[in-house]
Amino acid sequence: MAEIAKTSRLSVGQIYRYFANKDAIIEEIVRRIVFKKISLMTGNAHNLRQMAENLAHRRIGSLHVEHPRNASPERSLEQPEIDHALMLEVTAEATRNPVVEQIWRDAEGQLFNEAKAMLARTYSHLSDDELAARVEILAVICEGTAFRHLTTQHADPIHLDVLYDRLFSRLFDPAMLPPQP
């Protein structure tokens, strides 16, 4: 709460004028993070070549883009890592608080469904189960990489980039696309 108050330039008491309780604050934080993730997915985040490079270099939640110097804190270069840390905190809180667990499950479901819908637009011939499996694999890779961001990277990013690229090429093989009319 102290960090939220500091960032928002409000006192803790003032924050509670806008939010009924801590769960409402968590819900808003999660909503904003999910919105940003969906914006990334529907922007250029579906670029598998870029995703392979980002994962290889452990760039979390963003493409390799420059942000203006005087942009809002929500757009800072550190914000994707802060968002990831916040989501880890929400996940931990969800193990203790059923309200937060439901917030987390709803957000995860929204992200999963958006990713599946995005893939369905390109791979419309894949069944719902096949799309779900591919999204699940991508989620595990991205979330695992985000978690490992805090550890020592034991593999050379250049080699990882090649492997991720091969994996994505197999997972989303252009030969799987139906012929164009």
Rank of each mutant, 00 (worst) to 15 (best):
T91D: 05
N97Q: 13
P98R: 15
D106T: 12
P98V: 12
E101K: 15
A85E: 09
Q102H: 08
L77T: 02
R69V: 13
A94I: 02
L88E: 12
Q79V: 04
E93I: 02
V99D: 02
T95M: 12
W104E: 07
E101V: 00
T91A: 13
Q110N: 09
R96N: 14
A107Y: 03
E81G: 00
M87R: 06
V90Q: 02
N70V: 09
H84Q: 11
Q102A: 14
L77C: 02
S72H: 14
I82H: 04
P73L: 14
S72M: 08
R96F: 07
M87H: 06
D83E: 15
R75N: 13
A71Q: 11
A107V: 09
R69S: 14
T91R: 09
A85V: 08
P68D: 07
S76W: 12
P73I: 15
V100L: 06
N97I: 04
P68R: 08
R69C: 05
E81R: 08
N97V: 10
E108L: 13
G109A: 06
E78C: 04
N97A: 10
V100Q: 05
T95E: 15
N70Y: 14
N70C: 04
D83I: 01
E93H: 04
A85W: 03
P80V: 02
P73V: 15
I82A: 08
P68Y: 05
L77V: 06
A71Y: 03
V100A: 03
M87N: 03
S76Y: 10
E89R: 13
I82P: 01
E93T: 06
A85N: 05
N97M: 10
N70L: 15
D106Q: 13
R75G: 01
H84D: 04
E74L: 14
V100H: 01
